[in-house]
Computed example of a mutant assay.
Amino acid sequence: MDLDLIDHSILSALQRNGRLSNVQLAEQVGLSESACLRRVKLLEENGVIDRYVMLVNPAAVGKPSSVFVQVTLDGQQAEKLAAFEAAVQNVSEIMECYLLSGDCDYLLQVRVRDNADYVRVHEKLTALPGVLRVQTSFALRTVRRTTEIPLNTLNQ
Rank of each mutant, 00 (worst) to 15 (best):
D7N: 11
D7P: 09
D7H: 05
H8G: 15
H8P: 04
S9Y: 05
S9T: 05
I10M: 02
L11I: 07
L11C: 01
S12K: 09
L14A: 00
R16P: 00
R16W: 02
G18T: 05
G18V: 04
L20G: 05
S21E: 04
Q24E: 15
L25D: 05
L25E: 06
E27Y: 10
Q28P: 01
Q28W: 03
V29W: 11
G30P: 09
L31C: 14
S32Y: 06
S32H: 09
E33T: 15
L37M: 15
R39D: 05
K41F: 14
L42K: 12
E44F: 15
V48D: 14
I49A: 05
D50H: 15
D50A: 09
R51Q: 08
R51P: 01
V53E: 09
M54P: 00
M54W: 15
V56L: 10
N57G: 05
A59N: 15
A59M: 13
A59W: 12
A60F: 13
A60H: 13
V61Q: 01
V61T: 14
V61E: 05
G62I: 09
G62F: 11
K63W: 01
K63R: 08
S65P: 00
F68V: 12
V69Y: 04
Q70H: 13
Q70Y: 12
V71T: 03
D74R: 06
G75V: 08
G75D: 10
G75K: 08
Q76E: 11
A78R: 11
E79I: 05
L81E: 06
L81F: 14
L81C: 07
F84V: 03
F84Y: 07
F84K: 00
A86G: 12
A87S: 11
V88Q: 11
Q89H: 08
N90S: 10
V91G: 06
V91W: 08
V91D: 02
S92Y: 04
E93I: 07
I94N: 07
I94P: 08
M95G: 15
M95R: 12
E96D: 13
E96L: 06
C97V: 14
C97S: 13
Y98I: 11
S101G: 09
L107D: 01
L108C: 14
L108Q: 15
V110K: 12
R111H: 14
R111A: 11
V112Y: 01
R113D: 15
N115L: 10
D117A: 14
Y118N: 03
V119N: 09
R120L: 07
R120C: 00
V121T: 13
V121K: 08
E123M: 10
L125R: 02
T126Y: 00
A127I: 01
A127V: 03
L128Y: 00
G130V: 03
L132K: 13
L132E: 11
V134Y: 00
V134A: 01
T136S: 06
F138Q: 05
F138A: 06
F138Y: 10
F138I: 05
A139L: 09
R141Q: 08
T142E: 13
V143Y: 04
V143I: 11
R144W: 06
T146V: 00
E148W: 01
E148N: 12
E148R: 07
E148T: 10
E148A: 12
I149G: 03
I149R: 12
